[in-house]
Amino acid sequence: MYNSIVMVKQVPDTANISGKVMKDDGTVNRAKLPAIFNHEDKEALEIALQIKEQYGGTVSVITMGPPRASDMLKECFYMGADKAYLISDRKFAGSDTLATSYVLSEAIKYVGNFDFVFAGRQAIDGDTAQVGPQTAEKLNLSQVTYVEEILNVKNNVARIKRKIDGGQEVVDAQLPVLLTVIKGAQEPRPFSAKKIMIYKSAKTLLDLEKIANENSLLYLDELVQEYKDKNLYIETLSTTDLSEIDDTRIGLHGSPTKVHKVESVVLSGGEVTKIEPTEEGIGALIDELLNDHILG
C-alpha cells in the first residue's frame, strides 16, 4: 500500500491570452482567462492512480487556487482520486513560487500519511518548474524531477526512469519522495462516466456556504457532514485551518520576488524588405544572399 498526494494546478489556457489580463501591479488577472487542468499535473495524477491500482493505497489531490479551481478537483474525482483539497484564501493572492511552496508544504503536512508527493514538472502559465523542488525542500523530502515512468515499487523503494539532459537515468528512490512528472510520461485516462454521475455534485465549503445562505432551513455544519458522509465533500482549507501557517510567509508580502515592471514589446519594424512569392521575387532574394556570401 502506497499513499499519494498529487499537487495539481488550474492554469490559464495560454493559447488564449492577450495583454489585457495583466493587472497594473504586474500580476495576472486569472479571473479573465479560460482555465484548464495543467496537463503535466494530470499526467502526475495518472501515475499516482496506477500506483494505487497496482499496490493499493489512496490518492489525494490538493490545489492552491481560487474557488473555481474546484472544477479541476472534480475532474480529479472523475479520473479516480479518493480525496480532494482546495487550499483557498485571499491572503494567498500574489504569492510567488516560494510562498506557494510554503502553503503547499503546510497543506501536505495537514493531509499527512503519504509515501509519494507528485506534481507536474511545471505549469504552463509560468514554466518555472520551481514549486515542486521548493516544496520538497520545505518538507525535507528527496526528489526526482523529470519523471517518465515508475518501473516498480518494492520495500519502500521506487525504481524510477527519468529524463536528464542528453539522456535518461534510472534511480532508486527511498520513500517518501517527491516526484515531478514530464509531458508524455503517461497519457491521462478519460473521465469515467459513472464517476462523473457521482462526483459532479461534489461541493467545496464555499459552495455549501452559498447553499446554506440561500436556504434558511439548512445549517452549514449539517450540510458539510451530509456531503462528507456521501464522500462528495471537497475539503476546503484556509489559513485558519492551517494553524501552523506563518502569515508573513504567504501572499505578496511573503514572496521574495516582486514584479518591478511589465512592458509591452515594441517591435522595431519598418526595416523588412518585402519579397513577392514569385520566381522573380525569390530569385532576386537568392541573388542578394549569394552576393552577400550569406548563402552558397
Binding site: L98, T128, A129, Q130, Q134, K163, P256
Partner: peptide, 23 residues
Amino acid sequence: ATVVGRGLAPRVASNTVSGLTAD
C-alpha cells in the same frame, strides 16, 4: 536552466529564502 539547475536552484532558494526567477 538545465535539468540539474532546475532541480537544484529552487531547493536552494527555498532553503535560504531567496528570490529565484526562471529562464
